[in-house]
């Protein structure tokens, strides 16, 4: 594989954002009127000024960047809801509060390109940061319980999983090797046996 090493371990945060843009549908309030447009991914429209229309997030982002629409934030992206989740997060040290799987990506897109459409964006931003920190502390506690076969943490978001992934995969691999039963001495050289070695090398490369 000719990919740079850092791309082989896990998707980049940018790639996760891309996936979130594709998968999430949001409400958009266009500032213009236009008929249906047909794209490879589907047809969107017809657009009517000030009438909400459901579109994939990436279309909404594109239109917003052109200044052609306002975005309607999802129901969870407001200070009250997030504050409640933060409380929940603090009061239950053992579990993660249920948040949308791609909350980090979606919130980032909204706060980045459309802060004026989000109610009190600065508070939302700081609440999200607090939530992230509380959850990171929990992740650390959860990691102490990991062993070579499994790790139980439910309710992590995609970005959080992704951040752990390279480290955790490697660490569990190390633990698996350390816990494995020794190979029976004398049988480990079988890979040099005739016929097998050639095909094995091709597979490995």
């Amino acid at each position: 594989m000719a990919l740079p090493a850092r791309l082989m371990l896990s998707p980049l945060p940018e790639e996760l954002e891309f996936i979130a843009l594709q998968q999430t549908d949001i409400l958009v309030r266009p500032h213009f009127t236009m008929g249906k447009i047909r794209l490879l991914s589907g047809s969107y429209g017809p657009f009517r000024a000030t009438a909400n229309i459901e579109l994939p997030l990436w279309v909404g982002k594109y239109l917003k960047q052109q200044g052609k629409c306002a975005l309607v934030p999802p129901s969870w992206l407001n200070p009250d809801w997030l504050e409640e989740k933060l409380k929940q997060e603090m009061s239950k040290p053992e579990e993660f509060a249920p948040l949308p799987f791609r909350y980090a990506e979606i919130a980032k897109v909204f706060l980045d390109i459309a802060p004026e459409d989000v109610p009190s964006p600065e508070r939302v931003r700081s609440l999200l940061k607090d939530i992230r920190e509380v959850r990171q502390a929990k992740t650390r506690k959860g990691l102490a319980l990991v062993d070579e076969t499994e790790l139980r943490m439910t309710g992590l978001g995609s970005m959080e999983i992704n951040e752990l992934r390279p480290f955790l995969i490697r660490a569990m691999g190390v633990m698996r090797v350390l816990a494995s039963v020794p190979e029976v001495p004398g049988t480990q050289d079988n890979s040099f046996a005739a016929g097998e070695s050639g095909s094995r090398m091709e597979e490995d490369w």
Partner: peptide, 26 residues
């Protein structure tokens, strides 16, 4: 082995930080 793990953890934390700091705002 631990050093490699350290690097892995550091790299992914860095990638996430850079992503949070990046912007697509025109």
């Amino acid at each position: 082995t631990e050093r490699e793990l350290f690097l892995l953890g550091q790299e992914s934390a860095k990638a996430v930080r850079l992503w949070y700091e990046s912007t697509d705002r025109k």
